[in-house]
């Protein structure tokens, strides 16, 4: 049974239909890649999975609960289980790296300051950014900001992680670190949804890939099969070629 189900999802902005009818199932423990051209609404779809954007119509079921019907207070419980990794980290620039990571822990747990420190220390160490613990986001490189953003997202041990282009604009070294982290989390049975344009990363971490085009899911297939799709546009996109 699917962990997350998107049914008849529709969303438009100022008369422009971004999503006409999206239907998609995400299963527990898998990593689903969502690909498609710029402006097809990949990030909109991802934000809808955590209730940051409400659809015009349709359902987003998480463990059979329709999150589109929940208000902000009710969504808190969902957001403890589903983490979101923002494209540019979205770190709070008035807080240090330590304070950024402590933020969800202080908000949702009764952990002592000592326990919070130990957890943050361990997490930052895993991501190789321990030296940034007392720095502010503005003092970090783009790659470090993304890694700290990812560390903040997983610190609550979520069941699902939504990645919004986590490798965009990164050097090969940082890209590799992010890929390894996603694979490590997948091995711990964390479900991942991975929005990307970076096809090598998608091939490295995803089990299945969904291709969005013209407001619908044009194809969903095993990661190895997407390049052999009958639709020339889909296979060319996956191969990084012009259709």
């Amino acid at each position: 049974m699917a962990l997350i189900e998107i049914k008849n999802f529709k969303k438009s902005f100022q008369g422009h239909d971004v999503h006409k009818d999206i239907n998609l199932s995400i299963f527990s423990g898998e990593c689903l890649g969502i690909i498609g051209g710029s402006g097809v609404g990949k990030s909109v779809l991802l934000k809808s999975l955590i209730g940051l954007i409400k659809p015009d119509d349709g359902q987003v079921l998480f463990k059979n609960q329709d999150i589109t019907k929940l208000n902000e207070d009710e969504l808190v419980e969902v957001r403890k289980k589903i983490a979101y990794v923002f494209q540019n980290g979205a770190l709070f620039d008035s807080l240090s790296v330590y304070e950024n990571l402590a933020y969800p822990l202080k908000e949702h747990t009764m952990m002592t300051e000592q326990d919070i420190y130990q957890k943050i220390y361990k997490t930052l160490d895993e991501f190789g950014v321990l030296n940034a613990i007392n720095k502010y986001p503005a003092e970090l490189s783009g790659g470090m900001q993304k890694r700290v953003g990812l560390a903040r997202s997983i610190i609550m041990d979520p069941e699902v992680i939504l990645y919004d282009e986590p490798t965009a604009g990164l050097d090969p070294y940082n890209t590799k670190i992010i890929q390894e982290t996603i694979i490590k989390l997948k091995n711990k049975n964390v479900t991942s949804i991975f929005v990307t344009h970076d096809m090598p990363s998608a091939f490295a971490v995803c089990d299945r890939i969904a291709f969005l085009n013209q407001g619908v899911v044009a194809a969903v297939s095993d990661v190895k099969e997407i390049t052999n799709n009958n639709d020339n546009e889909i296979s060319a996109f996956a191969k990084g070629l012009r259709p």
């Binding site: 979101y84 923002f86 979205a90 770190l91 709070f92 620039d93 933020y103 969800p104 908000e107």
Partner: peptide, 13 residues
């Protein structure tokens, strides 16, 4: 810079 969305995504108001 999506920090407001990040507050919401982290389950805070």
């Amino acid at each position: 810079t999506e920090q407001i969305d990040a507050i919401r995504a982290l389950g805070a108001s």
